[in-house]
Each structure stands twice: as structure tokens, then as C-alpha cells.
Design a protein around this nucleic acid. Structure first.
Lengths: 199, 199, 199, 199
DNA sequence: GATGAATGAGACTTCATTCAT
DNA sequence: GATGAATGAAGTCTCATTCAT
């Protein structure tokens, strides 16, 4: 059955996302789904391998999300609205994983960093994600600029970087600053962005 | 002598910033500075306490940096230039610590996240840092707006959040994206920001 | 297999009864039965837990012994003879444990004291043992008094306490005093006791 | 000054009497009297030596007490009353040590046992104490028997052993059994003892 | 497919002890 | 007479991993 394997990844993710890599024990994962430690070794040859699978699972979801947001049919406004509705990302993630523990950007971000420290290879995956997002945005901005919707004097490459940076930064910062409602912030940012780039 | 204690914190920071908390052993720290494991316990009652001291050391430097950047005498342009010259932050940090290991934002960010997972209290410190920065910027923007330098229709509170988010996001993202020169990015962002907010 | 667990308790008891609690290392226990340190943690979650199990094992044997000695069918003389034949207690204990290390009362007594210092709860167990013994004796004395065997003017409650105290004291003291043969002492005490309480 | 040395012994005794030998650290003793660990080594060459001094201190007091109780001028009744007034022993001990922590026989007894496990030599000291006491009593009993006060058919050697055993046993057992008032028990035992040995 | 016993390495931590000051 | 830094050995405990069943 593939069921057990999925259960392991899910439970592992749940722990890895909230705790230090080293402080997550295979026992606790096994116990959490009602099997024994040794059983995990049927599906994964090591703790590292399991961890990697967890990270990849999350990354694929993020990639899918950003691809969806930038679908061809969407208007400039719709794209920005999708990307800036941070809460949706984590809601979707939680639903996909059938669990409610990815409560904020910090959880996701933490997993990413820990992963990179453990396996430098993961940094490459992150790079791909950001590059794809940035290039996607740049292409869209160029298209809109050609159509006369975006101001002519704007450097689309820089703008794309700005947007990506602001999305990541807003998610990160809003997890800490007091008195910032994530939903409102998203809307405000979309508005202010459109105002300054559109003709 | 306070020398040994400082050496311990320095070496510990060096390891904590590059590796998983749990995978940093006190032995390696001790060995790294030529003392024995037990010696560390003269100065710190536990690994956690040492870790905390390391984090606080870094936080104080960041706080100082952002306070310096927003000094009263500085012009709008100077403030933005300071805040967006990311590389300077880490250069300064490296100099202060007399070590060259804080090579990028990821290192600092990682330390922050790991710290928060271990000690939720640290999240409060981070909140203070961001809040101070955001409020400082907002005040400055309002002042400049009153002087007629910044456009009247701009919401300074949102703008302050945007700037903080962009700084953090740019530092984070630029650590991954390919083909982005951190120095150039900073300059570009200052330019584009000034262009859109100034009369 | 329950074999290993039993081996651990047995070997642990062997060490705990002869040495300081703290100076008994899990390594030595493990080594003593040919397993590794970590193996002990399969059966006991801590050194304390193992220690507790050891103590309980001993207590249960003592309780059983005193219950046996005061069985209903035994005559007054037989009961006293059983209780005062100290050496039998430890012989039995050694046989039950399949080891010959409980050589005298001091060993048992020491274990009891150390246990109490570590876990105050153990004092309650000891209390139960003594109370049961004292009450059992009192009932028997009252019965014998009613039958006219024990002198009418004797306070059976005090007598019961005296007997318990003398048993414990004799075991304790005889471990030190020179020139006292434990076997002879027991017989003498039975004789002198019967002489003074019987009609 | 001899003051510091005395303070060390006193504080050490306070800890050794309530805790496991190994779990008493020199740091805690030093801290308890406001000096540092290293300072102890001015007066004692090792932890063991300090421990031994503590035990000897206690033993000397016990020996003195029993010698006092059996002073030549005292009558049979007075001697027994002194020996059986257990609480007095510990009260006196506490006063001598200027501390109130020797609350019961268990504390004293525990110290004795731990001492023996660590240094078999101490068993010899205990033997001397018991032997002295037993021989002292035997001599007194013989004297009283010669004077016609004690029954002729009593074996004074056995009686002396019985008394010592009962004293030790009563102190031990009364620390556990419920509903036994130590003071009353002492009086009862004196009475019942006199009744059975006197003409 | 899964269990459970067992290993072995490595971690944090404590402490008696030494010694220069 | 006393401090305080530092050592080094030992101890408890945790865990990834293996393997017979």
C-alpha cells in the first residue's frame, strides 16, 4: 500500500515544520501514525531521505501555486491579487496536505532554511522557484507594457524582482509586526502597486 | 578574563549560523577555541543559554544598524540608500564580530528562525526590531510629506511597511535568484522607490 | 523475551545493594550482562525507573516472607521462630533472586534507606510492611491471650511493637557486634520472649 | 581560623545527611557557606576525607551520648530511661551541631550505611560503638543481678543484646509505623522491660 | 509489511580536582 | 587563605540504524 508511505511523509512534515530537524525523532513520527520505528525503513532508507521527500512535497505545492497564479488567462490585476493573497497560499497548502499546521510563512520558510543547511542541493530548488516566478512576472509585465497598460519607462526586470521581493518580505515581516492584518496588507499592496505601474 | 567568554560566543555563533542547532556540538566549539568541553560551563549553564547569548548579540547589532541608518540628519535619499545597501549590513556585522562568516541574509535569517522555534520569546525581539524600523520610517515619511517632498496621496504607514518588506524580501530573494547583483539591486530599488514617491 | 529485562533487574539489584546509587553506572550493569548501555533503555526509561523496579522487587519478597511466617496454622512458637530466624530471610531472598548477594540485613536496609532518600514514596511502602507485620502480630497475640496462653496483664499492642523492633534491631545490630552468632541469637531471643510472655 | 573548617563540616554534614553522597557536590557546600569550591581544598585533601570527618563527628557524639547514659551513678531505671528516650538523642545531636536537621533515626542511620558502603573501615567504628554499649549494659546487669535486683535466671549477655537491639529497632521502626508516639513508646518499653527483668 | 530487540556513537552535563594568582 | 579558570573523566540519555523473526 502507498497509504503508509503517505502517512509517514505527512506526519514527518508536521514535525519537521514545527521542530528542529535533529529534535524530530523517527520514533515520534512512527508513534504518531501507529507503527514502529523499524517500519519507516521499509519506505525510506534514512532519515535524510525522508526529510528530503518532505521538502520536495512542499516545494512542488508552492511551485504549482505560483504557476496557477500566473496562468495565461489572468489579467494583471488578477495575477497580483493572487500572489498577494498570502493567506490563500497557506490555506491551500494546509488543504492539500490535509492538515492545518502550516500556519504562516515562518513555518514554510523555516523548513526551507533548515533544508538548505542540511542539503545545499535544496538551495538550487529554491533558486528555480524564485527564478521561475521572477521570469514569469517579467514576461507578463513586458506583454502588458507592449499593450500599453504598464508605463513605458518602467524596467520590467527590476519590477519583477521588486514584486517577488515584496511578496516574500511582506509574508515574512507581517508574521512579526504588530497591528498588520495580512489580508488588508495584501489588498493595499496590490492597489499601491497598480497605481504606480499602470498608465 | 572576559576573553574566553567572548571567544566562546564568537565560535559558537560561527557554528550556529552555518549549521543546525542540534548538530552543533559543544565539543566542536570548545575544540575550535582550544579549551575543553567542561570549560564552556564556566560561562554558560547550558547550550541553550549560550545559544541565546549568541542570538542577542546578533540582534543588538542589527538594531544598532537600522537605528544608525535612520539617523535624524540623514536625507530621505541617504536613509533609503543605507537601508538598501544590504551588503553593508553583513560587512559591518562581520567586522563587528571580527569574522567573515555572516555572508548573506540567509545566515542571519536562519539563526532568527531557529531561535524562534527554540525560544518563542525571541519572536518578540524580532517584532520589536521590525516595529521600530517601520515606525521610524513612517515618521520620517510623514515629515517629508509635510515638507512637500513626498506625494500627498501616499499612505505613509503602508509605504513604511512596503519598504521594510521589500528590504527583507530583497535580501532573502537575492540570496537565491541567479543573475542579480546585490549591489546593483539595491541601487535600482532606491531609484525606483524615490521615483514613485517623490513629487 | 522477558529474559533480558529480568537479567537487567537482577544485575542492577546486585549493584544497587552493594554500592551507592550514584556510583552504580548503567554501563556497568549493561556490561555485567553482556548488552550495551542503550539496551537498558528498551526496558526502562531512566535509571530511576530501574532502581524503583529493583526496590519493589525486594519489598514484595519481604512482604511475602512475613506473611508466610504468620500463616494461620502456625503456633505462637513457630511464628516467633520463623520471624527470628533472620538468616532464613536472606537465604530465601537469595534463592528467589537466584543470587547470593543479599548477605545481611545491612544490604537490605541500605537499599531501603537510599530508596527513601531518592523517592519519598518508598517510605510509604516501608510503612505498610511494618504496619502489616505489627498488626498481624497484635491479632495473633490477642488470640493467644484469649486462649490463656499469653499472660493476661500484657499489652498486646506494645508487645507487637516490641517484637517488630527487636527483630529489626537484632538484624541490624548483629551485623556489627562481634561474637554474636546470628543463628544462636535468634534461638535465644525466641526462648527469652516465650518465657516472659507465656503463662 | 578554625572557623571556616567547622563551617565546612557542618554544612557538609547537613547535605550528606539528607542526600546521596555522590549527589552532594563540593560546589553546593562551598556555596552554602559563602566560599568557593577551591577553598575547601585548604582544609580537606578530597571529598572523601571531608565525608569521613563528618561521619566521625557524628559518631563521637553518639558514643558520648551512650557513655553519658550509662554513667556509674545512675540507677537501672535511669539508664534505661535515658537509652529509651530516643528523641533526646537527636535533640542533643541537633543542639551540638547547632542545626535542626537530624530529625530522626533514619537520617543518622542512612549516613552510617552510606559511610560503610564507601569506606568499609567505618563498619569497624560502628562495631566499637555497639560493642561498648552492649558490654556496658552487660556489666551493669551483672552488677544489678549480684545485688539481687535483676532476676537470677536471666542471661545478662543476651539481655544486653536484646536491649541494644530493641533500642535500635524501636528507633528505626517508629520512624515508619503509623500511630506510634516515640515518647510514649520509650516509656512503655522501659516499663515492660523493668517488669520482666526485676525481681 | 512490520515488529522489537539491540547497537553504538555521540550529545549534554556534572564534578572532583588542580593551579596560577 | 581563598579565588576562579580550566581540565578530564565519567555518567545519563537519545537516536538512527540494523536485523532476525
Amino acid at each position: 500500500m502507498k497509504e503508509t508511505k503517505d502517512k509517514i511523509v505527512l506526519k514527518a512534515l508536521q514535525y519537521f515544520i514545527k521542530n528542529d530537524y535533529e529534535s524530530v525523532s523517527l520514533s515520534s513520527i512512527a508513534e504518531g501514525i501507529g507503527i514502529t520505528k523499524g517500519g519507516i525503513y521499509h519506505y525510506f532508507s534514512s532519515k535524510d531521505e525522508l526529510f528530503l521527500e518532505c521538502i520536495i512535497t512542499v516545494f512542488e505545492m508552492v511551485r504549482e501555486f505560483s504557476a496557477d497564479a500566473m496562468s495565461e488567462n489572468a489579467s494583471l490585476e488578477e495575477v497580483l491579487e493572487s500572489l498577494f493573497s498570502f493567506n490563500n497560499i497557506f490555506q491551500m497548502m494546509s488543504e492539500s496536505l490535509n492538515m492545518d499546521f502550516v500556519s504562516n510563512y515562518m513555518d514554510y520558510s523555516y523548513l526551507m532554511f533548515v533544508g538548505i543547511k542540511k542539503f545545499p542541493k535544496i538551495a538550487e530548488m529554491v533558486t528555480i522557484i524564485y527564478d521561475e516566478m521572477q521570469q514569469g512576472l517579467e514576461l507578463m509585465f513586458l506583454d502588458q507594457q507592449a499593450k500599453g497598460i504598464i508605463k513605458k519607462d518602467i524596467n520590467c526586470k527590476i519590477l519583477a524582482f521588486e514584486i517577488v521581493a515584496m511578496i516574500e518580505g511582506a509574508m515574512l515581516v507581517s508574521g512579526f509586526t504588530t497591528g498588520t492584518d495580512l489580508k488588508e496588507v495584501g489588498k493595499d499592496l496590490v492597489k499601491s502597486t497598480l497605481a504606480r505601474i499602470c498608465v
